[in-house]
Simulated scan of single mutants.
Amino acid sequence: MNEIAAARAELTLAGKIVVGPEVLVHSDPAYSDLHDSSVKQKLDALHLEKIDLADSVFVVNPGGYIGDSTRAEIAYAREHGKAIRFLHP
Rank of each mutant, 00 (worst) to 15 (best):
M1H: 05
M1K: 02
N2V: 11
E3H: 04
E3R: 11
I4S: 01
A5I: 12
A5V: 13
A5E: 10
A6Q: 05
A6T: 10
A7H: 00
R8C: 03
A9N: 03
A9D: 01
L11V: 04
L11F: 11
L11M: 10
T12C: 02
T12N: 05
T12D: 03
T12H: 09
L13E: 14
L13Q: 13
A14E: 08
K16D: 03
K16M: 04
I17K: 14
I17W: 11
V18K: 01
V18A: 03
V18M: 11
V18C: 02
V18E: 13
V19M: 12
V19T: 06
P21D: 04
P21G: 12
P21S: 10
E22A: 08
E22N: 04
E22L: 10
E22R: 15
E22K: 12
L24S: 12
L24H: 14
V25I: 15
V25R: 00
H26C: 09
S27V: 07
S27F: 10
S27H: 10
D28M: 07
P29T: 02
P29V: 00
A30P: 08
Y31S: 02
S32H: 12
S32D: 07
S32G: 09
S32T: 02
S32L: 04
D33W: 07
L34V: 06
H35M: 06
H35D: 05
H35V: 05
D36V: 07
D36L: 08
D36C: 03
V39C: 06
V39F: 12
K40R: 14
Q41H: 08
D44T: 15
D44C: 14
D44N: 15
L46E: 13
L46R: 14
L46C: 05
H47P: 01
L48Q: 15
L48E: 15
K50R: 15
D52F: 02
L53P: 08
L53D: 11
L53K: 12
A54V: 02
S56L: 14
S56D: 13
V57A: 15
V57T: 09
V57G: 10
F58I: 07
F58D: 05
F58M: 11
V59L: 15
V60I: 14
V60S: 09
V60N: 11
N61S: 10
P62G: 12
P62W: 06
P62A: 14
P62R: 09
P62E: 14
Y65E: 15
Y65I: 09
Y65M: 12
I66K: 13
I66V: 15
S69I: 07
R71F: 01
R71H: 04
R71G: 00
A72T: 09
A72F: 04
I74D: 03
I74Y: 04
I74H: 07
I74L: 09
A75M: 07
Y76T: 02
Y76P: 00
A77I: 06
R78N: 02
R78P: 01
E79G: 00
G81I: 04
G81D: 08
K82W: 00
K82E: 04
A83I: 13
A83V: 11
I84G: 05
R85L: 09
F86R: 00
L87W: 07
H88E: 08
H88M: 06
P89S: 05
P89E: 00
